[in-house]
Amino acid sequence: MQRAAYTTDSLVKRWLRHRLKCRAPLQVSMRPYSVFPPVDSEEKKMLDRMMRVDHAGEYGANRIYAGQMAVLGRSRSAPLIQEMWEQEKKHLKKFDEILAVNRIRPTALLPLWNVAGFLLGASTALLGKEGAMACTVAVEESISEHYNSQIRTLMEQDPDKYVELLKVIKEFRDDEMEHHDTGLEHEAESLPGYWLLKNAIQLGCKFAIYTSQRI
């Protein structure tokens, strides 16, 4: 009887080790994106809105760069656009994880931003490198300002409580500002009608932010 009990106990331990080994990659993958501290229902609603619109923004930015690459993929500007796009892909992946871990519904408007983002990127790229850079400046400036607004809100709430989330948002804000500055360095402002195009794009960005928070 003792031998049988020992054998059964060993089998249980082996099974538990196997389960932990199988689950380890999932835990490691998800942990960095669990950036929400314990919150009440009102705070959860606020954070859900923030993450929903941030996810939508990064999704739209990815589609814009995809549109630019569809037009300028063989030009001298392609490596620069691809480099910025790779950063946006990392942003989107991180927000995908945040939404999944915290069970946040993405905006129902993603299909619209899928098409609108690609068309915006492609149409401005048809104006040449300067057009693509002008679009980048306008979009990244809008996203940076939106991230700054979120940072101020979280700092006013409790900077210690939201330290991990603030770290993520600040990192992404800095990347977007780098893209903005890159666009200016590559002659965005030399595009005829630059200010008109920039204001039109940023008006669209404000509409996208407003609706993505709510729908």
Results as ranks from 00 to 15, higher is better:
residue 91 H to K: 02
residue 180 H to R: 04
residue 125 A to C: 07
residue 155 M to I: 13
residue 151 I to Y: 02
residue 104 I to N: 03
residue 189 E to C: 07
residue 79 P to I: 05
residue 115 V to E: 05
residue 166 L to G: 13
residue 195 W to N: 07
residue 196 L to C: 08
residue 109 L to E: 07
residue 95 F to H: 10
residue 149 S to R: 07
residue 164 E to K: 04
residue 109 L to D: 08
residue 184 L to V: 10
residue 191 L to D: 15
residue 118 F to K: 12
residue 171 E to S: 12
residue 101 V to Q: 03
residue 110 L to P: 11
residue 67 G to L: 10
residue 83 E to S: 15
residue 117 G to M: 06
residue 155 M to G: 05
residue 67 G to C: 06
residue 78 A to Y: 03
residue 109 L to G: 07
residue 126 L to M: 02
residue 181 D to N: 15
residue 179 H to L: 12
residue 70 A to N: 02
residue 66 A to D: 02
residue 119 L to T: 12
residue 158 D to H: 08
residue 84 M to P: 00
residue 101 V to R: 07
residue 104 I to W: 01
residue 85 W to C: 14
residue 203 L to I: 03
residue 190 S to E: 12
residue 189 E to V: 08
residue 81 I to F: 08
residue 192 P to G: 00
residue 139 V to L: 02
residue 116 A to G: 07
residue 197 L to T: 10
residue 75 S to V: 15
residue 188 A to V: 04
residue 89 K to L: 04
residue 123 S to V: 01
residue 116 A to C: 09
residue 200 A to Q: 04
residue 109 L to H: 06
residue 111 P to F: 15
residue 191 L to K: 15
residue 187 E to F: 10
residue 93 K to G: 11
residue 163 V to C: 11
residue 79 P to L: 00
residue 124 T to K: 10
residue 139 V to N: 02
residue 150 Q to M: 05
residue 114 N to E: 15
residue 177 M to N: 13
residue 110 L to R: 15
residue 65 Y to H: 14
residue 165 L to P: 03
residue 176 E to N: 01
residue 97 E to D: 07
residue 102 N to T: 02
residue 93 K to V: 02
residue 155 M to Q: 12
residue 68 Q to N: 09
residue 143 I to P: 14
residue 135 C to H: 03
residue 79 P to N: 00
residue 158 D to Q: 05
residue 74 R to C: 10
